[in-house]
């Protein structure tokens, strides 16, 4: 069952990763339960892509613009940010 689900998505993802012009993509995850909304990640992001929500906690609108410098991950005092290389999507319901 699993193989059937992945097969339609598989060729599309391999094409995007193999093309040489395509830049490396990253995913940022914010763990809002540990976040205290200090605003360090929002203020120091070199691409200014981290944006505060109504509680002052960070969110990201366009993760494709992330350059993977990991400044936010290293300077988060609350261990609430994870930056990781984008993994190819395996299933249709993958976020």
């Amino acid at each position: 069952m699993k193989e059937k689900k992945t097969s339609p998505d598989q060729p599309a993802t391999t094409e995007t990763t193999q093309t040489p012009k395509k830049k490396k993509l990253y995913d940022i995850e914010f763990y809002h339960d540990w976040c205290k909304a200090c605003g360090i990640c929002i203020a120091f992001c070199p691409r200014h892509i981290i944006i505060a929500d109504k509680n002052g906690k960070p969110g990201i609108e366009d993760p494709d613009k992330c350059i993977g410098c990991r400044f936010c991950e290293m300077h988060c005092p609350d261990f609430a940010i994870t930056v990781c290389d984008r993994q190819p999507r395996r299933r249709k319901d993958d976020i």
Binding site: K36, A37, C38, G39, I40, M74, H75, C76, P77
Partner: peptide
């Protein structure tokens, strides 16, 4: 620690 405290870093 307070929000933004350097100790976490």
């Amino acid at each position: 620690w307070c929000p933004g405290c350097g100790n976490g870093i």
